[in-house]
């Protein structure tokens, strides 16, 4: 019996390593090829240089894409973080008749395919003044982000004791004091995580953005999409690495502030 346990856990560990490799290999490959000075993408890389990185950072179009992505991500964060947090707070704090319905409404954008949201927004605003603005792209992302932050904050708030707030009020704090003295310090790391999540999910979003950007507001992932549609240019690997680095940095910040416990709440 002891033997079979050992055997099956070896199998499990082995399977785990394989699956992890499956998840990580594409990222590693892109990183390796981005350091290849050759004109065509090939494996193994023919050499080592930062040629395409220089190309990327000296090219106006790519620079613009990167900046646009940051603009959109920041704007999305500003919109979605308050919306999501406030709603989650209300969900945990109050009991009311329509709670289940409100909850469902809040989650719908999370489970609606981005493709359809992008198209619906294009059709609704494509002929208005909002067409191709940073605002509309950020709004599109904010729909998903708000839902997502709502779900995440619900989980974070489930350990939060609202009686602290009542105690503060009881001791004479006004609403603002209560928030700044009690709520904010207690939930600081959750709020920071929400901001980081909002930023990174918008930064890498491509499906909706494809339908909503113009050449002026094109984001990095969309630029990557259009450039790869026509040729496999090596600079694309650099753009990809930039996207990955953003993801890694934010990811590390999240684990630092939040631990992985909360991360596992991302599942449905």
């Amino acid at each position: 019996m002891g033997k079979t346990i050992a055997k099956s856990s070896i199998f499990l560990n082995f399977a785990c390593v394989l699956i992890s490799a499956f998840i990580l290999i594409p990222v590693v490959i892109i990183f390796l090829t981005s350091l290849d000075p050759a004109k065509y993408i090939r494996f193994p890389p023919s050499g080592f240089s930062l040629l395409w990185y220089e190309y990327f950072f000296s090219n106006k179009v790519w620079q613009n894409g990167l900046l646009n992505s940051v603009y959109v991500a920041v704007l999305n964060t500003i919109i979605s973080v308050p919306c999501g947090i406030l709603a989650a707070y209300a969900y945990r704090k109050y009991t009311f008749k329509l709670k289940n319905i409100f909850n469902t409404i809040m989650i719908i954008p999370y489970v609606t395919p981005s493709l359809l949201v992008g198209i619906a927004l294009l059709m609704a605003f494509g002929r208005t003044i909002l067409r191709g603005t940073y605002f509309i792209v950020a709004i599109a992302h904010a729909l998903w982000s708000t839902s997502f932050i709502y779900i995440l904050m619900q989980a974070a708030l489930s350990n939060y004791d609202f009686t602290y707030e009542e105690a503060a009020k009881d001791l004479g704090a006004n609403l603002f004091q209560m928030f700044s003295e009690v709520t904010l310090p207690l939930l600081k790391s959750a709020f920071i995580a929400a901001i980081l999540f909002a930023f990174i999910s918008s930064f890498g979003e491509v499906t909706m953005a494809i339908f909503l950007v113009t050449s002026k507001t094109v984001t990095l992932p969309v630029l990557l999409w259009t450039s790869l549609k026509y040729e496999l240019h090596p600079v694309a690997t650099v753009a990809s690495v930039i996207c990955i680095i953003f993801a890694i940095v934010i990811f590390m910040l999240i684990t630092k502030f939040f631990g992985t416990g909360m991360l596992s709440k991302i599942g449905m």
Partner: peptide
């Protein structure tokens, strides 16, 4: 990988 965009 959740935050690595689909194109990448």
């Amino acid at each position: 990988p959740i935050w690595i965009n689909l194109v990448v």
